[in-house]
């Protein structure tokens, strides 16, 4: 799904990278307010949906090959966050929708989830 299309579905505003969004695809969605979870479970090519706005969101996106980020609940990041995202060519989008609604409308529009592998307590995977 094109990032530009996601912007339209979410009635969002691009804080940076709107000009790249037309040609940028995401394959999955992952929603979390816990970067530790994103680092463990988000797949490459996922749109990150989050309510956190600090600069580490963009760092996390860089590391995880996350092409674009949407901030929910109308939350706006500080300037240094936007600057790093612009340098890293990661479009940032802000929507007034909640995390639940954002995830729901994107899922309904056909953006698949990242499947989390089954794990035993203690973190061993199968």
């Amino acid at each position: 799904m094109k990032v530009q299309e996601i912007g339209a579905i979410l009635e969002g505003e691009f804080l940076c990278g709107g000009e790249w969004a037309e040609n940028m695809d995401v394959d999955f969605g992952y929603a979390a307010d816990l970067m530790s979870d994103v680092l463990a479970f988000a797949r490459a090519g996922s749109m990150l949906i989050t309510g956190l706005t600090n600069i580490q969101i963009v760092r996390t996106a860089q590391m995880m090959d996350i092409p674009a980020v949407v901030f929910v609940r109308g939350k706006r990041p500080q300037e240094d966050t936007v600057r790093l995202a612009a340098q890293s060519r990661i479009p940032l989008l802000v929507t007034m929708k909640s995390m639940y609604e954002t995830s729901g409308v994107l899922f309904a529009a056909g953006l698949p989830a990242c499947i989390i592998p089954h794990r035993e307590a203690g973190g061993e995977e199968h």
Partner: peptide
């Protein structure tokens, strides 16, 4: 509050 410190780091490194 920054979204870290959930006790996932070392297990994730190992993985």
């Amino acid at each position: 509050e920054m979204g870290f410190g959930a006790g996932m780091g070392l297990p994730n490194i190992k993985r």
